[in-house]
Design a protein around this nucleic acid. Structure first.
Lengths: 202, 202
DNA sequence: ATTAGGTTTAACCATTTAGTTAAACCAGAA
DNA sequence: TTCTGGTTTAACTAAATGGTTAAACCTAAT
């Protein structure tokens, strides 16, 4: 069994690509089989149904989003460093996997109940993150702000540019893809500056 | 012809509802007919194909997004008032039509070329908005920032909370829908404060 | 050489779904 | 009354698609 790549992995990779592009409804099993370089029969041999395959892919992509969360909170640094690190890591992650946000959000809206299950599997402790922010407010490191708002503000600024790529490119950047790439490269510095200015007291 | 409501309008309303919930691929013509309280034959009688009906709905929803843009820019006030008015109007609009962002973004990613056509129809002058921001920087009303970044930052903060509703509710707010409603009510003040603090020089 | 399991081929089934058609229905206008 | 056009009913077609099946194929291990 000296395959260049495990067939199961090939399938999952192909499924990622197709599901992300087309969504659950738009994806075709035949298309996934083609993408994986195998035939439909074998595809069903590995993953009996489309649903099972989809669940697998979704779980993988969803996990990626929360991975950074966990790592960022676990580090012991000043709040300012934490903020900066968090933002830069997050944007970096989406630069490498720009397809994730759009996909996860779409499918989460299609089936909102799923998030409960997914979050139970990921044993992430949100309370610690909330406490971190509350403490920074108490210590007068940042201006008073509710943790939910600060977190969603940061996530907004990090994620939205990837979700809205066609709008940003088409509307603000004259459809110029090079400009979009440059825009994305500027985001880390821009977001860090924006957020720091918005909340840091000094 | 004294109908309670024009049949064509009934269809478009129904189509909005269904397309927004399910997306183009997930939507079923039968479902739309049911929602409109008519039968499938009549549905096809008015809009020959699913595509034609979809295009109609998409154009309507897309226009809503840019309507606020146009109005906000056309007012003659201080930059600070402009900022605040723009943010409050935008969030208010999405509070009334929370289904729009998710839908438009999904379909725009499914077919990015479409944005070009849509933007040509909407004769909105983006340059004026850009100039407004550049001038505010020159006049030292705000710190140096590229218009694209400021605009996308604001849009991020306004729109993301609606797109990510299930994540925010499930993750940060313990699945409590009342808390989500309250969270959304707090957004205008929060975003205005956040953005002002981030860019305004005083 | 035999075996076993991953893989292919190709045909096939059942279901869903967009779209069509034809006949009947019904109300208001002429 | 007759005509017209929106509306319904119900049956239908054609295509797409998820999933199945059975037989053959190939290769590495025994």
């Amino acid at each position: 069994m000296t395959k260049e790549q495990n067939t199961e992995d090939k399938i999952v990779e192909a499924a990622k690509t197709v599901f992300v592009q087309k969504g659950m409804d738009g994806a075709r099993m035949q298309h996934i089989a083609d993408e994986a370089g195998i035939n439909k029969a074998l595809l069903h041999y590995y993953f009996r149904t489309k649903d099972k395959l989809f669940e697998k892919v979704f779980a993988i992509l969803f996990k990626d989003i929360f991975f950074i969360f966990e790592r960022a909170v676990s580090e012991e640094t000043s709040f300012e460093e934490f903020l900066e690190g968090f933002i830069r890591q997050y944007i970096k992650m989406f630069k490498a996997r720009p397809y994730i946000p759009q996909f996860v959000i779409h499918e989460l809206n299609r089936n909102p109940e799923r998030i409960v299950e997914q979050l139970q599997n990921s044993k992430f402790d949100k309370q610690r993150l909330f406490d971190l922010i509350d403490k920074a407010v108490e210590d007068k490191v940042i201006r008073p702000i509710q943790p939910v708002h600060l977190i969603t503000n940061i996530l907004s600024l990090c994620i939205f540019p990837f979700i809205a790529k066609p709008i940003i490119t088409g509307f603000a950047l004259d459809g110029n893809k090079t400009k979009y790439k440059q825009y994305i490269d500027e985001r880390p510095d821009e977001v860090v500056a924006f957020v720091k200015q918005a909340v840091l007291l000094k």
